[in-house]
Design a protein around this nucleic acid. Sequence first.
DNA 1: ATAATGTGAATGTCAAAGAAAGTCAAAACT
DNA 2: AGTTTTGACTTTCTTTGACATTCACATTAT
Lengths: 160, 160
Amino acid sequence: MARLVDVIEMVINQMLDENDGSVIISRNTLAEKVNCVPSQITYVLSTRFTPGNGYIVESRRGGGGQITVMRAKPLSSTEYLKAMLDTIGRELSQQQARLLLQNAISRKAMNAREATIIMAACSDRALGKLDPDARNIVRADVFKNAIAGMLVDVNNNNLR
Amino acid sequence: MARLVDVIEMVINQMLDENDGSVIISRNTLAEKVNCVPSQITYVLSTRFTPGNGYIVESRRGGGGQITVMRAKPLSSTEYLKAMLDTIGRELSQQQARLLLQNAISRKAMNAREATIIMAACSDRALGKLDPDARNIVRADVFKNAIAGMLVDVNNNNLR
DNA sequence: ATAATGTGAATGTCAAAGAAAGTCAAAACT
DNA sequence: AGTTTTGACTTTCTTTGACATTCACATTAT
């Protein structure tokens, strides 16, 4: 029932937790452990453990080859949010938004309530009246503006 | 004979009752259970479980895809926001949004930071790529979803 | 001894198949 | 007239597998 991607993501994160944010894995061994084809590991690494999400992944092929996964050193929440803004392009899918917010929470760059507000504001529900092609574009703008809103000095915003 | 929509609505509400206001459903499975085509579930969700009614619905496609339905907790401290949702029509101007947020702050229904996030998310700036006529319509949806997001029990959202 | 070559052991790539949910408009109710 | 019901088609995300590439090490040729 549980998605393979989720299982793999969890396993890697657990290893990272146990090893101070840096772990060396063997793709084949891990694949065997979770009962999947090796390329599935590659898929998870490239969709979940991206630089944009704060991870660095290095690898070596050949005999004794290996994959190193590292959590990037923790940035301040403001830095983190700014960096996040930079990674967002012209478009943003719902899932991308969700992942960004999840990571922001786990890095304490925002709290769960704030994340929920933003997720709701840029959900497909909220943008349902738009042309599907337009959605990801507008979502990117809504998302970026909401994040930018968090960076604004609360005593100096445009509500008062 | 009870209408299909009513049956489905009841079933979902029952699940929500049994699961503390938040439930993850499989569209296909539920459709099979109540003997209807899957798209009927989508129809019910989009006509009954709207932000205006205090619900947040999120979904993921693909293998292991799922739909999450969340109900705002009937906390008295959030009554104000719920009532506010009801007053918002199909369209919402920037000015109106700002006023609603200012009022919400003065009623302690949200804090300044949260209001700033929402204001930014539905600002003309965020919606700048849209046709001016479309802006107020989309803004209404973004605003409503954001508010509904605040009503969701944070421990119960589907970000984690 | 050194350079070239072979060999097996890894990881990378990519596209097809599969598994869900979303869309939309026509038909059927009320 | 306005809602509900249905179903064909679309989009998104996951899973799999065949094939390509790279690397360390052993072996062979000069």
